[in-house]
Amino acid sequence: MVGSLMYLTASRPDLVFVVCMCARYQASPTKKYLEALKRVFRYLRGTINWGLWYPKDTAMALTAYADADHAGCQDTRRKAEYIAMSGCCAQILWMRSHLTDYGFAFNKIPLYCDNRNYQLADIFTKALSRERFEFLFPRLGMKSMSSETLKRLQEGEEE
């Protein structure tokens, strides 16, 4: 079940956090773990048509988001942010290297940390309230892939 969900994270960034959390417990699953997985599949049933849309004529951009978890400690906040951004930079360099192999060149990759861009990184790194999730979800660039929407998108209409 977790492997299937991991496959989906390539086109469903809304699943990244929960799938990573579930993957941590697959070595010794409990009833609570199985209930969480079932809840993910129920969520998928209700959002079956959603996914990332990559129009063929748009430029590809790479943007990075880092999230520092300093557990509310104001004394170590700045250090935690630097550590989070440092780890993110390592991932950016790795990704840029691999994308170069596929013919994509990125010289400037913006990196946003915490309080910028609606804290979009929160959707990948934290368990969020329904209200917060629903606020951030549309900002992921996902669209409904129902047959009507796909037809409009292919014809160039905005949804």
Rank of each mutant, 00 (worst) to 15 (best):
E35H: 10
V40L: 05
R139F: 04
R24K: 09
C113N: 06
F17P: 00
Q154C: 15
S144L: 05
Q26L: 05
G103D: 10
R12E: 02
M95W: 14
C73F: 05
H70F: 13
S11P: 06
K31N: 04
V19H: 00
W50G: 13
T63F: 06
W94I: 09
C20L: 05
W53D: 01
V18I: 05
S97C: 13
P29A: 03
Y82H: 13
C22T: 09
C113I: 06
Y82E: 12
K32M: 12
N115R: 05
G87D: 10
T125K: 08
M6W: 04
D122M: 03
C22D: 03
L140H: 08
A61T: 09
Y65A: 03
Q91M: 12
E157K: 10
I92M: 01
S28P: 12
M95E: 04
H98V: 14
G3H: 02
D75H: 08
V16G: 02
K56A: 11
E35P: 11
A27H: 11
E81D: 06
R152F: 03
R96C: 12
E81M: 11
N49F: 12
C22F: 06
Y102L: 08
A36C: 07
N49I: 08
P29T: 06
A27N: 09
T9C: 00
D67P: 02
A61Y: 08
A90T: 09
F17I: 00
F104D: 15
W94T: 06
R132C: 00
R39M: 08
F17Q: 00
K56S: 07
Q91D: 05
G51Y: 01
A66M: 06
F41D: 12
E131S: 09
T58H: 09
Q119R: 04
Q74L: 13
T76C: 15
A27M: 13
L34M: 13
T125M: 07
C88H: 00
M85H: 14
C73M: 15
A23V: 05
W50L: 13
D114M: 03
R45L: 08
Y82N: 10
K56T: 15
M145S: 04
L140G: 03
A68E: 14
K38I: 10
A61R: 07
G46D: 01
G141P: 03
S129F: 08
K151T: 09
E134C: 07
Y118W: 11
P138M: 04
R39D: 02
S86N: 11
I109E: 02
G103H: 11
G3N: 07
A23C: 12
